[in-house]
Design a protein around this nucleic acid. Sequence first.
DNA 1: AATTGATGTAACTATTGACATTACATCTTC
DNA 2: GAAGATGTAATGTCAATAGTTACATCAATT
Lengths: 148, 148
Amino acid sequence: MQISMKCSVAVHCLIFIHEASGIARVTSKLLAESTGSNPVVIRSILSALKKAGLITVPRGTGGAQLCADPAQITLFQIYSALEPNGVTRLIGIHPCQDRPCPVAQNIYKVLQKPYKKIEDAVQKAMESTTLQSMIDDFHALVQQSANA
Amino acid sequence: MQISMKCSVAVHCLIFIHEASGIARVTSKLLAESTGSNPVVIRSILSALKKAGLITVPRGTGGAQLCADPAQITLFQIYSALEPNGVTRLIGIHPCQDRPCPVAQNIYKVLQKPYKKIEDAVQKAMESTTLQSMIDDFHALVQQSANA
DNA sequence: AATTGATGTAACTATTGACATTACATCTTC
DNA sequence: GAAGATGTAATGTCAATAGTTACATCAATT
């Protein structure tokens, strides 16, 4: 399993919501068209972001809005909102502890240290990226293509 | 997709091969029993490790052996041997570049920087773990349970 | 209050990928 | 040549992901 596309879609939605703020009412249908996804999929992602306290989604009328400072929202927060077990689920160890082999009985513990190192590295990398930095990059890219 | 169990099985095999060196002839059947996996799966893993120059597997007779210093074999080498696109495949971005929305057209580029950061972090974490360090941890664990 | 358009969810389907298994050709040693 | 091992293609199985349909609920407008 990978860092699912849900994560990239979520970032997409958050940037969209930020850019549309005060301009348009952002509905799941609109986001579905922009992301090439499905309104139901979008709603489930927005629901997760909502539970994490990153956005508000008024019921009935729609119109999602950020409810936190983009500079304070990290990629790790976004990812964690979507994936219950977070970084842990990125890694799998084959089950074999019941085997009569000493390697089999200890491989799990042997792998724990290096795998934890990887998880921590991923978390740190995600925490070092904020929504604001991605919005800034987005603006720079739009500016570039406007000049071309 | 995740760092597949192939990777943990591969480490399992390499430790097994190291420990059995000079004691027993390590066949895919033996490794399958120890890992709780299947001889064919083991053979495909050994084949990848062989191509990466980490082990030798004599045809016909079997008896895999390390052909590199465990202190020089990193987890990243092991993982890269198994997964063709390495760390890149850990991450997915939804396809939407053909959409008429500026966010859709730029989201791929916006995500490249943070995702590259994650990949680099994973690679570094993997490179900092050697087979030797895992073998050492394994020995310590065996020693512990012998004392208990 | 009826209509419209939106969200919140459950349920189902389709697809993909990982792993397991079968089968068989090939190779080495005895 | 027989036995046992590897190399590999082909198939089966299962879980996870994404897409879709359906419908209850809600808020604003008329």
